[in-house]
Amino acid sequence: MEPGLFFFWLFSAVVVVGAVGVVVMRQPIHSALFLLLSFLGVACLYVQARAELVAAVQVLVYAGGVMVLFLYTIMLVNVKRQRTERYLHRQAVPALGFGFLFLVVVGGVVVNEARALAGKAPAADPAALATTVLGSETVLGNTQAVGWVLYRDYLLPFEIASLFLLVAMIGAVVLGKRTMERFD
């Protein structure tokens, strides 16, 4: 097996094991740690796809920011689950049904794509992707490429999205503050 393929399977296995661990673990902290593992595996896959910027941002935002806040909340809430507590409630049957449906849809797309690609020549050298052609210019590295796309081609949608986030953040602060006052 060539090294690239080996590492692809390795990182994919990490992602899948992490994802399964999130739902299987009973202790919320353990679930959170498996989610972290899954995030890091996804970041490794991004690196393999030559998307270093996305990989770094994935680790920085999801692993370094979001998950830390999750852990923080879980530790403060300090859930102590009873071992005898029921793990799956009435949701088990519909969850299995919808899960199977999802698997069929995603699996169908993957199989279709694989069939379409089977006859074609292998993809170009991934190293070539490091140089992205955007419009008339050739841009070096995907940091610049992402920068051009976000701040020039899609500037307005980007700004609107950030405004939405700001509104959501202020809303969260207002809601959180109200409950705090009620407690006092």
Binding site: E52, A56, L60, A63, G64, L71, L140, T143
Partner: peptide
């Protein structure tokens, strides 16, 4: 010499906080 070395430094160093939180917990 990665072209996103600085971002990677920020990302990797943000992992260190887990050591502290988990050690404490």
């Amino acid at each position: 010499d990665l072209n996103v070395a600085l971002l990677l430094i920020l990302a990797v160093s943000s992992i260190g906080v887990y050591g502290i939180i988990l050690a404490g917990w």
